[in-house]
Simulated scan of single mutants.
Amino acid sequence: MANALTGTVLYSSAFLMELKLGFLFVLFSFVPIWMAFANLLPKGQNDGAVLREVSQSLLARKLLFQQLEMAQLIEGKVPFADLPDTYFESINDAQYQKTFLIDYFFMVAYARALDGLEFEEADSLLQAFSANRPVEESVYWPVYMLESLFCDVLFGRLADAEEKYIQIQAQPLLKRHWFGNRRIRASYAFFCLVDVEATKKLLEQEQAAAMDPTPETDANIELRLYRWLKSYFEN
C-alpha cells in the first residue's frame, strides 16, 4: 500500500511540474508502483500469497487476525510469557498446519520457550515445526537453521550441529544470520568445539548489549540467554 501510494503521488505530482522535472517524477513513480504490483502477485509468502491464502481458507483468516493481534502485543513490549495461551492452540492442530501462516506461531512459541529457558520445550517445537511444515520453503528458514543448531549443541546432537554448520557456511543468507548472532556462535564454540577462549571472546563482545537498560522484547530473550551461557564461567 505504501509503495502504491508513493507511486501514485509521484505520478500525479508530475503533471504539476515543469516538463523536465515532471518527466523525472514519472520515471521515479514506476519503481514503487512496480514494487507494489510485484508484491501483490502470489509468490512465496509475500502479501499477494497471504491475500490468496486468506481468501481461500477460513482457518487462514483466523490465523492472520491472531497474528496481527499477537504482533501488536509484541510490538507493545508485552512479555512473551504474558501472551495468551489460546494463540498457540493451533500449533498442535493438524488442520492449521496446511497453511504457511502457522509458521509465525511456531516461531513465537519457540521464542516464548527460550524466554523461560525451557530448552526441552523449545527443541520440541522446532522438531514439530520441521516435521509438519516444509521449513525450507518458509520465510523463517534461516531462523530455523540457526536455532535448531543451537538446540542440537545443547542436547548433544553434535553431528547434526556440525552438518548444519557446514550448510550455514555454504549459503550466504544463512552465513549472514550466523555472524549476526553471537549467542549461537558462542554456544557452538562452547558445547561443540569446546573452545573456551573463543566462547569468552564472543560473550565479551555481547557485553555492551547486555548492559542496555531498556532492551526490546527480543533483546530481553538474548540477554537472558547470554546471562545463562555466561554462568558457566562464573564459578
Rank of each mutant, 00 (worst) to 15 (best):
A49E: 08
A128F: 05
L41W: 13
M35C: 09
L173W: 02
A94S: 13
D103H: 11
V196E: 15
F190Y: 15
D47C: 05
N92S: 14
Q72F: 12
P32E: 11
R157L: 08
G180R: 13
F119A: 01
V108A: 00
Y140N: 03
L16W: 10
M145E: 14
F65I: 11
D195P: 08
L68K: 14
E120L: 15
A71Y: 05
G156H: 08
W34P: 00
A36H: 14
F23W: 08
L41C: 08
A159T: 13
S90P: 01
L158R: 03
D85F: 00
K164M: 11
E197L: 11
R227Y: 09
A2F: 11
S57C: 09
E75R: 12
E163N: 12
G22I: 03
V54C: 07
E222G: 12
A71E: 15
P134W: 12
A60P: 06
Q56W: 03
L225S: 05
Q72D: 14
S29Q: 09
R182Q: 13
Y104E: 14
W178M: 03
F30H: 06
E89M: 10
Y144Q: 00
C192W: 01
F23C: 08
E120K: 14
L5S: 12
A109Q: 10
L58N: 10
L146V: 06
D195W: 05
V31W: 11
L114W: 04
A219I: 04
L21R: 10
Q97K: 15
V108M: 01
D195Q: 06
G22R: 08
D103C: 01
Q97T: 09
Q171D: 15
T86H: 09
L58Y: 11
L149W: 02
D152P: 01
P42L: 04
L114F: 04
W34N: 09
F65T: 13
L202P: 00
F25S: 04
F155I: 02
Y188R: 00
K175G: 01
S130M: 08
V139F: 04
I168K: 01
L154V: 01
A198N: 10
L101F: 12
L225F: 07
A161H: 02
L73Q: 13
P215C: 07
E89W: 05
Q97Y: 07
A14K: 02
A2M: 08
D160R: 08
R182E: 10
G22M: 07
L51T: 02
Q97P: 06
L101K: 11
P134N: 13
L27Q: 12
D152F: 00
H177R: 11
W141T: 00
A159N: 13
E120S: 14
Q167Y: 10
Q207D: 10
S231Q: 09
S138T: 02
F155Q: 00
L5F: 13
A111S: 13
N39R: 09
A170W: 04
Y165N: 02
L19S: 12
E162T: 12
L16A: 10
P79E: 09
G116T: 09
A113G: 05
F88W: 02
F28T: 01
S187P: 06
L125A: 00
S57P: 05
S187Y: 03
L73I: 04
K230C: 02
L203N: 01
E137A: 15
A111C: 10
V143A: 10
Q97N: 15
I168G: 02
E137I: 03
N220I: 03
F106A: 02
A36S: 15
V26Q: 09
N235H: 10
F100T: 06
F37A: 15
A198G: 06
I74Q: 02
A209E: 14
R224P: 00
M17S: 11
G44C: 08
